[in-house]
């Protein structure tokens, strides 16, 4: 029973990683850049929804939509101002710019919301008004799963299915896949490459906002650096599953969450991150392009 509850908390954490990793992987697939500012968009999403709930008194779902809207706009603005001028620049220059954007977002948040951590009002509090716990009781109460974990897992699955359908069925999704394969050829086929990349950033940032709300609902401390570690973990998850692949990001995120929860429970709290990263290294040594990534041998 104990094992099951650890497993479920791992899947719940992994779902958050998976949502962030989906955003990472889409942006990487199309723009071929490591968007280090992605983690900080999560933090912005967290703060926006926090303000909406605490100061404006909006209901949780409306706060989520507001956070998504703000982050979508933020994603498009970041892409347009910082990344678009560097389309033909070396990839390291884009990487450093992304880091600059990440510093910018963190320090702006620090100026607006100050360094002291905020206590995030969870979308679904752990106990309801009557003092009963908001959790699904199974096996005569031996196993309890909080509703917020259920919501996290459900949203992750919904997002994953929606994204898969979007990229395989819609026109925009097909354009995205075309751009990620060959931008020049896509342009010749009449695809607006810039608009497609902007849309990808918009979707990635909206996903980051959802992840921010879900993350803060489960781990309710919010501060300007909240997004960095989940950002790095999600990046790891995306690489773990094979960067650029949507099912890969999903699988990588889930596995990473489970490994982290298990390592925390059974091995050592201090070394949980070490174990996660060690597993990543071993996986990459066996499969150099990640679990579901395609290994493209270089042709001469």
């Amino acid at each position: 029973m104990e094992f099951l509850s650890y497993l479920i908390s791992g899947i719940s954490l992994g779902s958050v990683y998976a949502i962030i990793a989906l955003g990472y992987t889409m942006v990487y697939g199309i723009a071929k850049m490591l968007n280090f500012a992605h983690g900080d968009v999560i933090m912005v999403g967290g703060y926006i929804s926090f303000c909406a709930i605490s100061y404006l008194g909006l209901p949780g779902w409306l706060a989520l939509i507001l956070a998504m809207a703000v982050c979508t706009v933020l994603g498009i603005v970041i892409e347009g101002l910082a990344y678009k001028p560097l389309r033909s620049a070396p990839s390291l220059a884009v990487l450093i710019t992304a880091i600059g954007v990440s510093y910018f977002l963190q320090n702006t948040a620090l100026l607006i919301w100050k360094a002291a951590p905020k206590v995030y009002p969870s979308l679904i509090p752990t106990t309801n008004a009557q003092g009963e716990s908001n959790a699904l009781q199974l096996f005569n109460g031996q196993l309890s799963i909080s509703y917020i974990s259920l919501l996290t897992m459900a949203s992750c699955i919904v997002i994953m299915i929606a994204l898969t359908l979007f990229t395989s069925k819609t026109k925009m999704g097909k354009a995205m896949r075309a751009c990620s394969e060959d931008k020049g050829a896509a342009q010749l086929m009449g695809i607006n490459v810039n608009a497609t990349i902007s849309t990808t950033f918009a979707i990635g940032s909206a996903l980051a906002a959802i992840a921010g709300v879900l993350l803060c609902s489960s781990y309710p401390t919010l501060q300007p650096t909240t997004g960095s570690m989940p950002g790095i973990k999600a990046f790891t998850a995306a690489v773990f599953g094979g960067i650029g692949s949507i099912p890969g990001a999903f699988l990588g995120g889930l596995l990473l969450g489970i490994i982290e929860a298990m390592a925390k429970a059974y091995i050592s709290t201090n070394l949980a991150n070490t174990i996660v990263f060690a597993v990543l290294i071993v996986v990459l040594l066996v499969k150099p392009a990640g679990l579901l990534g395609k290994y493209v041998p270089e042709k001469v």
């Binding site: 990487y28 690489v239 201090n270 070394l271 070490t274 990263f277 990459l284």
Partner: peptide, 25 residues
């Protein structure tokens, strides 16, 4: 050094974090 490009980058990142955690203990 057997890996390439961004995969190599992420593994060096992972090693940096591992070293940090190990020294912390």
């Amino acid at each position: 050094l057997r890996l390439r490009g961004d995969y190599l980058a992420i593994v060096t990142l992972a090693f940096g974090e591992i070293i940090k955690d190990l020294v912390n203990c």
